[in-house]
């Protein structure tokens, strides 16, 4: 077996930032992330934000699919596990996703390099730079949040870096 450690950029620090070319990228700490699934979960969280909605506030739910939401920023009232009275499955996912914020006048141009943002689905789930992510706007039109599986966080960061550098390319 080879020692390939020098072939892989060490994982960046949490506070790393990209700032330039009309875009800012940084990682944010989500205090809580909770996956909630169930046949009536979308009805139970009618104010969930999808795409291209603009989420707001310290906590909110994201529309992932017809039977799943992700609660962000607050703990859920039900503990982890299956709840037969409400028909919901609840799992903590706080550490499962890293969350990045991309903002600025060129934020959309950066993300356009990673995926089709005009896709017709209302779900926040899509592919970006080849990674499954949850993508939505937060508090303004040019401010985006991206949740990605933690193990892909470094690769997504590098992808965003490359896209920021290319944003002014013809």
């Amino acid at each position: 077996m080879r020692d390939d450690r020098s072939n892989w950029t060490p994982i960046r620090k949490h506070e790393a930032q990209i700032d330039g070319h009309g875009v800012k990228v940084g990682q944010i700490s989500a205090e809580h992330q909770v996956l909630i699934s169930g046949p009536t979960v979308c009805a139970a969280f009618p104010d969930s934000f999808g795409w291209p909605d603009i989420a707001a506030g310290p906590f909110y739910t994201l529309f992932v699919r017809r039977d799943r939401v992700l609660l962000v920023g607050a703990a859920h009232s039900e503990p982890e596990g299956w709840h037969s009275e409400t028909g919901r499955a609840v799992s903590d996912a706080t550490g499962a996703y890293e969350v990045f914020e991309v903002s600025g006048k060129n934020a959309r141009s950066v993300l356009d390099q990673g995926g089709e943002l005009h896709a017709p689905s209302n779900s926040v789930a899509r592919l970006l730079f080849g990674f499954g992510v949850f993508l939505y706007r937060y508090e303004s039109e040019d401010r985006y949040r991206i949740h990605v599986a933690r193990a892909h966080g470094q690769a997504l960061w590098q992808s965003l870096e490359g896209a920021c550098n290319a944003v002014d390319a013809p």
Partner: peptide
């Protein structure tokens, strides 16, 4: 395009990778 170098086939990364590197671990896929 952007799928080149480390991003051609990006590996999943451990949250304890800094600890392993500090312990002089030889890393591989």
């Amino acid at each position: 395009g952007h799928h080149r170098g480390e991003l051609f086939h990006p590996l999943k990364r451990l949250c304890l990778e800094p600890q392993h590197r500090a312990a002089d671990a030889a890393m591989g896929e």
